[in-house]
């Protein structure tokens, strides 16, 4: 596993970063039987960049995130994460990826602490107990650490999911609707947290149906329509109306 950047990437552009891109997708395509879910996706995300992934339902946002999380093998194209080309034996790269999905990805019958410790150990986090305590403080759930996840409200569960995704301090965070079911206070807290993650030099790719919020949070806006990238621009240069228009265009 060679994590260093290849020399030609340096030569390609003079402002190329020292470290390899967190995500570099080239001509990525995915089809289930004859249905094309993703087509010709080119995406290059440097470390520290926050990308807002937008699109109508069924445009392929979740699926793209799953491909980037190495949960689904793309049918076409090439995916590099941190300079490593993803193949059947590149499971080790998952240690640098954190995911937040629609579902909580937690065991409802276990306590918050048990969940976090389990996933920490799964990701080879040294001193998982220590890290768990840290994360519990961060999401403000330390007093309820020993309660089963099923007793928590939707918003609290979501906060645990976020803590779970960040347990192993990933360099790339893939989030699918992370604001789902959060109240105003938790939303604010999560927004601040995502900004902090970006400032710490980690890449974030986030699918979110709230366009205004996405544009405010992200550095870059990517709009998917029917499995294709139709917009890829700095987030500051595009208005909410334009995104809506692109999302629904035929």
């Amino acid at each position: 596993m060679d994590a260093t950047a290849e020399p030609e990437t340096h030569a390609a552009a003079n402002d190329a970063p020292e470290t390899p891109s967190a995500v570099k997708a080239t001509g990525l395509g995915l089809h289930f039987d004859d249905r094309r879910i993703l087509q010709q996706i080119d995406l290059d995300v440097p470390p520290g960049q926050a990308v807002a992934l937008m699109g109508a339902n069924g445009a392929g946002k979740s699926t793209l995130l799953q491909v980037l999380a190495t949960l689904i093998h793309p049918s076409q194209g090439r995916l590099e994460l941190f300079g490593e080309t993803i193949g059947p034996r590149s499971g080790g790269i998952r240690r640098r990826i954190g995911i937040i999905a629609h579902q909580s990805i937690l065991y409802r019958d276990l306590s918050i602490r048990e969940n976090l410790e389990f996933f920490g150990k799964l990701y080879d986090v040294v001193a998982a107990a220590e890290r768990t305590r840290e994360m519990l403080e961060m999401v403000g759930l330390a007093p309820r650490a020993d309660d089963a996840v099923k007793t928590l409200s939707r918003g609290m569960t979501q906060r645990v999911s976020i803590a779970r995704a960040l347990m192993h301090d990933p360099d790339l965070l893939l989030a699918d609707e992370p604001f789902n079911g959060l109240d105003a206070a938790s939303t604010k807290a999560l927004e601040a947290l995502l900004r902090r993650i970006g400032q710490a030099g980690k890449a974030v790719i986030m699918a979110n149906h709230d366009i205004a919020q996405s544009l405010a949070l992200a550095d870059r806006a990517v709009v998917l329509r029917q499995g294709r990238v139709v917009v890829d621009r700095p987030a500051g240069e595009i208005a909410v109306e334009d995104v809506l228009c692109e999302m629904s265009a035929r």
Partner: peptide
């Protein structure tokens, strides 16, 4: 009829 494809995140619970 085409059902949406099942993926790890969307598998029915």
């Amino acid at each position: 009829s085409e059902l949406p494809p099942e993926t790890p995140w969307t598998a029915p619970s």
